[in-house]
Computed example of a mutant assay.
Amino acid sequence: MADQANLKIPLGISAGIHIGAIIILALGISFEDKPKPVPSAPSAPAIKAVVVDQQQIAQHVEKLKKQKQDAENKEKARQAELEKQANQARKAREQEQQRLKNLEIERKQKELETQKANEAAKAAKIKQQQEKELADKAEAARKQKEQEKLLAEQAAAKAAEKRKLEEAAAKKAEEERKQKAEAERKRKAEAEAKARQEQEMADALAAEQAALSQTRNRQVMSEVDRFTAMIRATIQRNLVVDESMRGKSCRVFIRLAQDGFVTSSQTLDGDQVVCRAAKAAINKAGRLPVSTEADVYNKLKEINLTVSPEFN
């Protein structure tokens, strides 16, 4: 039992040393004082030394732990600072990005506003131009209306003057018409009176002429009958007859000149023998009795006669 207890102490010291070495190596910390070698032969003085060294090691380990904790705390503080700085940098970067984004938005907004302003200016210019054109058109229309009004007034004045002249002319024409109508009425009255007188005279003359004409007609017809009988007698004198002609006749047409010369003759109908004899008698006579009076001659120049042979 005593041997086992003696073995546990060196083993514990060795294990502690190894653990401390491992911790030191893990922490990467070097110590200037190196531990003294442990005597290999166990003895009472060695055990004491090991206990002392173990206390020193424990102290040293605590120191190392404290240094490690301090280092960890510093590292945590440094990491916290770095994280803080990173957060600040991230925030700054985000703020810068937001600022740039805001600037881009403002730039786009300004561009949009500038575009809108340009478009508004362009639209205002177009509107101004349109308003100017409308104003010019309105002014031109106003001037046109004024010109038309002036021309209308001038035309109305001319029309009024023309109407006055026309009314005066119409009045004068009416007076002249009345005068002409009165003169025409008087002329017609005079003409009607004259016409009545002339008609009365004409009627009287016509009545007289009718009476004379009837008397003359009777005289003409008497002369026509007389000369017709003379012409028939002349034809009878030149007519060669025989018994075959007895009771027979021929109707002939004779055209005479003013001196009684037979210009043409034509048998119309009747006995052929009588007709030949009548035509021969007419040609033989050559000239037949006619009146020198024109009205009697006009009734004798073309005559139709019936020739009937006469026997003694």
Rank of each mutant, 00 (worst) to 15 (best):
M1P: 08
M1S: 13
Q4V: 08
N6G: 11
K8W: 06
G16A: 13
H18D: 13
A21V: 02
L25F: 02
L27F: 08
L27Y: 10
G28N: 15
A44R: 13
I47M: 15
K48P: 00
K48D: 06
A49F: 09
V50R: 01
V50L: 05
V51Y: 06
Q54K: 06
Q56R: 15
Q59D: 15
H60I: 02
V61G: 09
E62L: 04
Q67L: 10
K68L: 15
K68E: 14
E72S: 07
E72C: 01
E75M: 01
A77Q: 13
L82F: 04
R90P: 03
R93E: 12
E94R: 09
Q98I: 12
R99P: 00
L100Y: 08
L103F: 15
K108F: 03
K110R: 12
E111G: 03
L112C: 03
E113G: 01
K122Y: 06
A124N: 13
I126M: 07
Q128R: 09
Q130I: 02
E131D: 14
A135Q: 14
D136P: 00
K137T: 01
E139D: 04
A141Q: 13
K143P: 01
Q144S: 05
K145L: 10
Q147A: 14
E153C: 01
E153Y: 08
E161V: 04
E166S: 10
K171A: 15
Q179D: 13
E182I: 02
A183D: 13
R185A: 14
K188A: 15
E192K: 13
A193I: 10
A195D: 00
E200F: 03
M201K: 07
L205V: 05
E208V: 10
R216T: 11
N217V: 02
V220L: 00
V220G: 00
V220K: 02
S222W: 02
S222Q: 11
V224K: 09
V224T: 13
V224W: 04
T228G: 10
I235V: 12
Q236C: 05
V240E: 04
D242K: 08
E243A: 02
S249M: 00
V252G: 02
F253C: 02
I254W: 07
I254V: 15
R255A: 14
A257I: 01
Q258M: 04
Q258R: 13
D259N: 15
D259G: 14
S264Y: 08
Q266W: 06
G270T: 03
L288T: 01
V290D: 09
S291M: 08
S291T: 04
V296Y: 11
K299G: 06
T306A: 09
S308L: 09
F311K: 05
N312F: 04
